[in-house]
């Protein structure tokens, strides 16, 4: 008998302190039956990857509103690879301009969700990519 739950880390890299969006997502994923590790605001790339490793999550969700994603995300993806976390699904949300999306996807961020995305879309995206 196995009882595999989807485990998700929701993290806010960088210096903006607005985590309402991250909390809404965390709550939606909880209601979809997932176990959501929420680490709070102002996380460094090192803290995020360390938490992802210790918590053995299937998904890392990054919420960022500060505009620093092109500086922070490459570092996070690098550290993930260094720690052998290549198989973890990475998604991002927040304020991310469309023109940055291809570059983020190229570095391995599988889904980028802007304002107005329904939480159902995100839940479905995660389930489809993990199955």
């Amino acid at each position: 008998m196995t009882d595999k739950k989807i485990r998700v880390l929701i993290a806010k890299p960088g210096l903006d302190g607005h985590d309402r969006g991250a909390k809404v997502i965390a709550r939606a994923l909880r209601d979809a039956g997932m176990e959501v590790v929420y680490t709070g605001i102002r996380q460094t790339p090192e803290m995020i990857v360390e938490a992802a490793l210790q918590e053995d999550v299937d998904v890392v969700g990054l919420s960022i509103l500060s505009g620093a994603h092109m500086a922070l995300f490459p570092r996070i993806m690098d550290l993930m690879r260094q720690h052998g976390l290549d198989d973890v699904l990475v998604v991002a949300g927040g304020i991310i301009p469309d023109e940055d999306v291809p570059a983020l996807q190229a570095m391995g961020v599988k889904g980028v969700f802007g304002p107005g995305t329904s939480t159902d879309t995100i839940v479905r995206f995660i389930r489809e990519h993990l199955s």
Partner: peptide, 18 residues
């Protein structure tokens, strides 16, 4: 109800990171 959970204890343990 959903079988899901919010695990938030790490928020208070940020001093221990690294």
């Amino acid at each position: 109800f959903s079988g899901g959970a919010i695990l938030g204890d790490r928020i208070r343990m940020r001093d221990l990171a690294g």
